[in-house]
Structures are given as C-alpha cells and as structure tokens.
Write a protein that binds this DNA or RNA. Sequence first.
DNA 1: ATAGGGTTAG
Length: 752
Amino acid sequence: MFRNNFRCSLFQPLSRIIAGTTPSIATTAFSSLWRLEFPGRFFCVPCQARALASQAWNGRGTRAPGFLGTIKRLEAHIQLIEKRAADLAARDAARKRLPDLEMTEELQDQAYAALMTPRSETAAFLPQPVAMSELLPAPIIERLGSAAALVDTSTPAWGAAIGHLGSNGGFQGMEVVDVNCLLVNMDLESRVEHTCKLREMMEKAELEPDTFTYDLLMMAHAQLKRPEEVILLFQDLKRKGVPPTVFTYAHLLKAYSLQADVEAAGRAFTEMREADIQPNIVVYTTLIQTCLNRREVLTAWQIFDLMKLKSRATAPDAHTFALMLHACALEGESERALNLFRDMTERVGVKPTKETYHALIHALAMRKDCYREVWRYATEMQQEGFKMDRRVLGTLIHACGKMGDLARARMLIRHMLGSGREDMIPDSVTYQCLFRAYANAKVKRNGARFVRDEPSETPVPYIGPGTILMKQEGSFEEDTIPFSQSAILHTPSEVVEEAGRVMKWLCAVKPHLVDTQLVNALLDAYSGQGRYLKFRKLYFTAFTDPKESDYLRPTASYTEAEGLTFEPSASVPATATIGTDTDADVDAGLDKNTGRDLPDEPTLRKRVPRNLYTFQAALNCAYKCRDLPFARKIRDARMKYLRTKQYYSQYREPERTRLNMEAECSLINILARCEMLSEAAALLQAACQKYSICEPDIETLHVKALQLDDTQTLNVIETCVGPLPYRGYTVGKRVRPRWRGEDEVEDLSRTC
DNA sequence: ATAGGGTTAG
C-alpha cells in the first residue's frame, strides 16, 4: 500500500514528463524516434557504420557497386553475424563451464597477486610546458607588462594579474575574444574566484559577454559543483538576449543534475528543443545522471534506450555505459551489469575505460555471489593497463567487506598504506569497508585455542616485504596501522581486538577520519562477531547526544505524539539491564572467561553524533541478543533523533521512510523474539497504517506466532500483510536454546 | 573553442 504509493511517487516525475502538459524529455525525444538512420533495417551500429562507409565508397570487393556489391556486402554481413554468434556461444559455454572449476581461491589469489605486482612505469614523455604569457592574447600581455611574470609560474597568480590589469585600464579597448581567451587559460578555481571581478571589468570596458564567455563561466561553476551560480549565469544570459548553444544547455543541465532536479532538467530540455537545438550524447548522459542522482533508475534506462534507438550520433559511449553500469550497482543488478558490459565491448564495440571497469566492478561488488567476477575484472582491468587508484581499490575493499574476506581487505589496506603515495592513502570510506570486513569475517566461534601464546594485541608496526625500516617521508603515521602479525585472524576475539585497535589508532593518528559512519561500522563489527557487551559499551560511550539547538522544536513538547511507544510491560525479563550478568552471558565465552575487556577498557578518544544507521545497528544487535530493555532505550533515543535538524538535513524522503519502517519492523521482531506477541501485533497494526509491510519484514513474528500457535496474532499479521506464505518451522528448532549457538541467520533486511 | 562517467551503511 504505502510502498506502492512510494513507488508511484518515485516514478511520478517520469509519468509527468512523459504524459505531462508540457512537452518533456520523453515526449520530445520519442517524437524524434521516427527519424532513424536506417528505417526498416535492423543493422547493429558497427554495421550501420559499415553501410554508411560502403555507400560513400565505390571500391572493390565488398564495396563494389551494383548487384554484385550488394551480394558481397550481404555475405560479409552474414559472415560477421555468424562469427559473432559463434563467439557469443563460445563465451556462454565458457561461462557455464566456470563453476565446475575448483580454482576459486587460487584464481582469486592469482588475481590478487597480479593486482599487487607493480607495473613497470614507462615514463611518458611530456612536452615542455609552454609559458602562459605565450598563450594569452597580445593586448592583455601588453597591458600586463612586467606583471606578466605573475602568470608565468606553475601556479599562475591570476588574482594578482587581474588586479594589476584592473588598475591599468582593465579591458578597455579590447575584444570579447581576448577576455574569453584569458578565461580559457585560467584554471577552473580561478575562473570561479574571479568571476565577479572580471565581469565588473568587462562592464567598465563596455564589453558584452558572448555565448562563449557564459559557457566558460558556467562550465567552471558546474565542475566545481556550484549549481546555483550556473543557473544565475544562465538567467543572465537569457536576460541579455545572448543565444545559448548546446554547450550552454549542457552546462545548465549539469547544474540541475547536481541538484538532482529532474523537473527543472525536463523544462530546460524542452526549452532547448523549442530553440531547435539538437540534444547530443552529452545532454542525454547528463539527463541520465540527473535521474540517477534522484534514484529514478527506470527513467535513466528509458533515456538510455532512447539514445540507442535514436541515431548513431547519440549512441551510448563509454561515459554513458559507465553511468548505466553504475545504475546497475545502485539496484544490485550484477547480471545486468555483466550483460551490459558484454554488450558494450562485443556488440557496440566501445572500448572499456577505467570508469566502465570500475563501475562494473562496483556493480559486481554489490553481491556476494559475484565475488569471483569482481577479481576477474579487476585483473582484466589491470592487464588492460589501467592503474589501480584509490577509488578502485576502495571498491575492491568494499567487495572484500561485503564478502567478509578479511585477509584480502587487510592486504589491500596495507598495500595502500605501503604505496607511500598521497593519492592512495585510505580515506574514511575505505576504513569503513575494512570494518565491514571485520563485521562479516567468518571465523570460528570457538577458536579451539586454549592457550594463545602469541598475544596479538601488541600493536606492531607493519613491516611488509620490501618495506624499508626507515619511515617514509610524510607517511610514517600510516605505516604503523596496528594490524595483528598473523596473516589470518582465526577467532572472533582476534578480529574484534584488531578492529578495536585500528579504531583507537585512527582516533589517535587520524581523528578527522573518525566519523559517525566509521563508528557505526565498528558497532557492526562487534555485533557481527557476537560481542554484544562491547557493542553496548561502544554504543553508550562513543556517541554524543543531540544538543538543545539541534532540535527543531524545543524539547519541552516532548510528548510522544507519534503514539507508537511501547507499553511498559510486566513480562519484561527483569535481568536484562545494561551491564548485568545477562549481558555477559549473552556475550561469547571468551569475553567473560578472560575478562580481558571487562575492566574499563579505555573509551574512544573521539565522540561522534548518532545517525539513523547507528540506531539500525543497535536494533539489530538488540534483536540478536534479545535485549528488550536495550531496544526500548534505542527506540527512545531514536524518537528524539527524529526531532533533530540533522534528521531532516541528512536524509531525503524515500530513505527516511525506508529506515523508519525497518526500525519499526526490527522492534516488532525483537518483541516477537521475547515472546511478547500481543505487543508486537499491536505495534504491527500501528505500523502498517504508515508503511507497506511484507511478510518477510516481520518473519520472526510470523514464525513465533506459528510456533506458539497464536491464532489471534496470526490473524493480525494476515490482515496487515495479506495472505501468509507457508512457513515450515521445525519444532526442534524451537526447543533448542539458541542463546549461544552458532550465529543466528535470521535476516532482518527486506528482500521483497 | 568549451561539456557528460567510477568508491559510502551485510
């Protein structure tokens, strides 16, 4: 119900654009669909190109004129199609064979080894840089005089030079082209910085900016992500009657893309068509980006299809494919990404770029079952000569994090730190992925090691093979990441201890990297390794409470108007309060037996504000350890958070709704696990007024109701989520105490 | 004589 509404609202801009009163992207673009290059001939793009070429030529062989030529061309075409079909079949066969090969690990290790081998650096010959003063127009150089030296450095002092110019007659007596030439040679930052001064000087010299002037200024602002100024510049251009070009509109559309303003982009697109300006591949690609920024993936695909159909000139290129691969990643559609990539390279004949490879790897990294493909394409990318940069490595670590491949995640981090390159050092996101690897690492719960004679908690500076003991200039801090010396971490304790050490190290050495997301990731690591006590400690010590000024309204009006608070219930297990024995029981044996982390472990040096994902992680943890009082505390804190400005500024509408629904469902499931079905059912009834809840969202409640044979609750569930699927619960499962069994595998995520 | 693309919460 609600979810459907939500879907509709998501797609509404699309329908409005297609069927709306104003002609829009889709209508205008569809109307030109009829103007295909080769109506009635379904030749693929390369063949269209061939056909064009052969029409233009009168050569021999397949280019021969007349009937014979036609036959030969047809034969050639058929051969081509046959060859392609054979190639595809061979490829498919190879792909199908693949799962039988038992080389997964080995292959991945090879891939990793290939990745880590430094490629021989062939020093590219760079031509001598030309002096700036030789590029600038003569009148400007003349007026600058000796001040021309200001710009003849590696970082030209544009501010000083323009100031000098301004006090020496400015642009007086010059042409617009001179100003434009100056702009062309200025870097984007300087263009933005000195826009006002330059326009002032132009006005003084009675020079009217032309289209190119506006283009250069708009471009600079667009690239530096300042959409407001771009839009203002465009309005100014219109007001002055300067005619825009397709470039001008492209810059404007880029601004709307940054604002994720699909409607405005649609209007601009229409306006452009009305001015009889043909949209080109860049315009369409920017429109796609706008849709993706608003998560309107369906519209993005429609524009993409349109580009393919419309003409050869607008056929998608590597830029467009990179975006669409990214669209696949957004939706977790890994197969679609693979197909698209194959389409791109084999059918359309577009050469993959670093960006397309990266986007493909990203799309593959979204799913665990594509982990091998991630490494396959990472290797291929490397073999094609593309260098790994921080972003690609970041995506690979992301894949490791998702998969729980901790060993490789740590190796990649070491690699990045050991590279000693400024542009390679891991950022906050990279570390976040590392922590997710800690969270998802599959280590045996009982690491059957009674005595552990290698105390892994001593922070040892990493000294890898080939690392010189001398600290490298400027990167000595990074070199001391307190990884355990063991190449592989075997027990949850080892994992959790290392995660904690790394976090402390980050707090001490790189505090600017420690943000809410990172601490949330550490929470996930504790939760993932079953360290619920540590989790709670972190949850209660590492975060700041919202300040009075953070609230939208004064907190005096704090009277749960939402009406979804828990009823205090007598059947709450009395033991389950923070820090009691129950908690220690819930935590795995090691924590308790060694007592290692029970006495005041120093808390994090840095505190960060909570966000919605903090609560999500906490609710998941409360679910896993069945801690209802903890869940209620989380809920209260969350309710308070919903009144803060941060809540409204950090999350947009669809995400808010999704997370709020997830939180409600978590609470329902926690209640169910604690066998408080009537309260859970009441909550469900209230929640389904606001959200469209499916059976998988509240699976625990359903299973629990079946186990307890609670027909009343089952009825409530049925009225709330519709007809219930069969759930084959086993009685044995119910009897077996699951408090300290292997990891529970209930999935709280929404899969429908 | 310009423009559009890739990492972020299992």
